[in-house]
Amino acid sequence: MSLSNSPRYFALIPAAGVGARMQADCPKQYLHIGGKSILQHSVNAFLRHAAIQHVFVVVSPHDAYVAQELLKDERLTVLFCGGETRADSVTNGLDAMAGQVDALDWILVHDAARPGLTPDLISRLIDQVGTDEVGGLLALPVVDTVKLQNLSASQHQVKTIPRAGLWLAQTPQMFRHRVLSDCLASAKAASFDITDEASAIEASRLIPQLVEGHWCNTKITRPDDLVLIDSYLAKLI
């Protein structure tokens, strides 16, 4: 594969989920922190980074919130092509943006519900991945003792497993447009369980780089997560 002499970077944020575990009245990406929606915070991290050419947000075709909860910007496009799964939304987004990007442009896929992302973390990912042919993602090395529970046994069994080499995946996950599109299509055709973009890359026997992230980039999944990130962002606003 030949590498681009002038790499370009685009953000793709799948935001078509409903966030059922938050037990909120609206999808969690539209809950507010510091007067802004969670989605707006996530988008702003990319808009504040000079290297990001454009930000694409993928929402449900019937989304009723984004027009009120996401400010317009000349570097921002909302795509109403969200799918049933995250992988479907990312695939649909990649297809929709194909006319505006090149095959070797970098796509930074980011969870809408990670509002603690900072431009510095984006820079760290871009700088450390560099011109790698595959790409990479932000992640955190596991520091706690890890327990494995076997629920299929006649009696629940628990054992400690070594944490050396274990990482918790975060986002953005940065891969070239053609590579990511091809790997997602191959993984889906093989009925592979696609839990994030890197898992699709790995299914094609490619090896992404792991770039150390930060706890502030935690994904909001449950109400307690919202309180934690609200406290962190309040210090920055």
Results as ranks from 00 to 15, higher is better:
67 A>P: 00
30 Y>F: 11
217 N>K: 01
190 A>E: 10
191 S>T: 03
98 A>N: 07
96 A>C: 09
184 L>D: 04
171 T>H: 09
88 D>C: 10
99 G>I: 10
177 H>N: 06
75 R>F: 10
164 A>E: 14
4 S>V: 08
230 D>L: 00
82 G>V: 02
129 V>K: 13
212 E>P: 01
81 C>P: 03
112 A>R: 08
35 G>F: 12
81 C>T: 15
156 H>L: 09
217 N>F: 03
90 V>D: 09
48 R>Y: 05
213 G>R: 01
197 E>V: 02
217 N>H: 08
22 M>H: 00
21 R>C: 02
204 S>V: 00
96 A>R: 11
105 D>M: 02
16 A>L: 04
189 A>P: 01
67 A>R: 01
149 Q>C: 10
215 W>R: 14
17 G>W: 02
36 K>N: 06
150 N>R: 06
61 P>R: 07
101 V>K: 08
15 A>I: 01
168 L>V: 09
229 I>C: 12
134 V>L: 10
118 T>G: 13
145 T>E: 15
89 S>Q: 12
84 E>N: 14
107 I>N: 06
48 R>K: 14
198 A>H: 02
34 G>I: 02
156 H>C: 03
149 Q>L: 13
59 V>Q: 10
152 S>P: 00
206 L>M: 10
220 I>Y: 13
195 T>F: 15
55 V>K: 04
5 N>D: 14
49 H>R: 04
44 N>I: 04
65 Y>T: 11
57 V>E: 01
143 V>N: 15
18 V>F: 11
69 E>W: 01
112 A>S: 14
83 G>P: 07
89 S>F: 10
127 D>I: 14
159 K>M: 14
98 A>H: 10
112 A>Q: 02
